[in-house]
Design a protein around this nucleic acid. Structure first.
Lengths: 243, 243
DNA sequence: AAATCCCTGACAGAAAGTGTCAGGAATGTC
DNA sequence: GACATTCCTGACACTTTCTGTCAGGGATTT
């Protein structure tokens, strides 16, 4: 019997019986008491809550009801957590980064299938780069939540976007784009997109975008390839290609 | 990462993504493909049903709905997520920060009551400051996970700590401290603690600490006050006081 | 005081896990 | 048909982890 099986067996024993001593558990599982203690520690590390009373009449008891009620997260919540972990992982090497990864994986797994794939696609479209340089950073504002929600919808529904853009020279133009991803160089945000009128991939700074709205008549290919880079090279960024 | 953790991580990955190749899973988990196959076999043995298609475009896919599923986070996972959100919130203004807060609240809510308070206490002991200055940053390493685990235990069990410390002049001394909190100035970590022999509060850089272990005979007052600052002023840091 | 029970540390031998290499079978592409 | 891709298994040396034993501490009840 492998350790893995024994652990679930131990958990089953704890759930079944109200309270037992480590000695009886050891006998039931066919291992030494020391090993049972180690296994109990492993179960505790995995989140099981249990009380343990010393002395005669004491024993180990699983705290039922404190066990996992499923948590339902909204899409935005998962995105934000995912994003925070990703960002902080890039910014500094965190000690708990391994746990962050597994936690995020669980977070993704907790979502229902269609939302999970949707979210996964969205996550892979957000690229976190190094912080922006000082001159760029100056005067930049964080993107409005509303604007970001529009992009979110454009991604998940695969629809085109129209907006007013003010370029570096202050010229204002009307753009129609196919949004492919977001690039974050804190605190500056860029939209990676294909300009539908010029037919070329472009980067748009989000704080220069105004009045964004979905284009009802333009839809992308249902499953085109997705960017798969960690830290982008701004010169060599390549647009998505339809599958 | 133990095999146990990796298996649940693998399961979460399978639940999150629709279909993946063994190669990408191996990369995500940091192990060889052979090991992934072994882990997949273990999950199948535990009752998970999955389809596997050979050939280009193929992959492994979990047959959902065939196994009970509850999201259960470990303490370390919640800490890391909380911490990541906190850190990234301080570093740059995130667009989804509101959602991050509510998501974290749910995360905390998913934990059992006693663990939630324990976690809350632990979280409040970690202070995230501005990044370290260049001279300090140079040569600093991130703290080992093992060392951090020792501090985690010292906090939650309220026990004293002993370690070897190398100060700025290179002198090595043996210290006995009462750890009060952690200060993070990425990527440098400090331990805020009271030196039990000198009777004064001190800051210890974590990369200069070696051979840390719990002092079995020293325990703190069961509920002493907790630091409650966001960004510390290094000059005016005050030690915890017993309640 | 004594007994019972939970819990931890240390250590050596035992067991399991892991990567590398080799190879087989099914599927899709050119 | 040749080739690439992908799932999957076996074998073997090497490494890591696990396990039992021993020792001891602390809490609780009798």
């Amino acid at each position: 019997m492998s350790r893995l099986d024994r652990l679930s067996d131990l958990e089953a024993h704890l759930r079944a019986r109200g309270e037992t001593t480590v000695g009886s558990l050891a006998a039931a599982l066919g291992v030494s008491e020391r090993t049972v203690f180690r296994d109990l520690a492993a179960l505790r590390a995995r989140g099981l809550v249990m009380d343990a009373d010393p002395g005669p009449g004491g024993g180990v008891r699983l705290d039922r009801g404190l066990s996992p009620h499923a948590v339902q997260f909204t899409l935005a919540e998962v995105v934000s957590l995912w994003f925070a972990a990703r960002l902080s992982q890039g910014a500094s090497n965190l000690p708990w980064s391994g746990a962050a990864r597994t936690g995020l994986a669980k977070l993704l797994g907790s979502l229902a299938r269609p939302r999970a794939t949707e979210l996964h696609a969205l996550c892979r479209r957000v690229i976190v780069g190094p912080p922006a340089s000082e001159p760029v950073r100056a005067g930049a504002r964080a993107p409005e939540r509303e604007l970001l929600g529009t992009f979110e919808r454009a991604f998940s529904e695969r629809r085109g976007l129209g907006f007013h853009y003010t370029d570096q020279q202050g010229r204002q133009t009307l753009r129609r784009v196919e949004p492919h991803g977001l690039l974050v160089e804190p605190p500056v945000w860029y939209v990676l997109a294909r300009d539908l009128d010029k037919g070329e991939p472009r980067m748009f700074r989000m704080d220069r975008i105004a009045r964004a709205r979905l284009l009802p008549d333009i839809r992308f290919h249902p499953d085109f390839a997705v960017i798969d880079v960690q830290v982008p090279d701004r010169e060599r960024w390549r647009p998505l290609t339809a599958a």
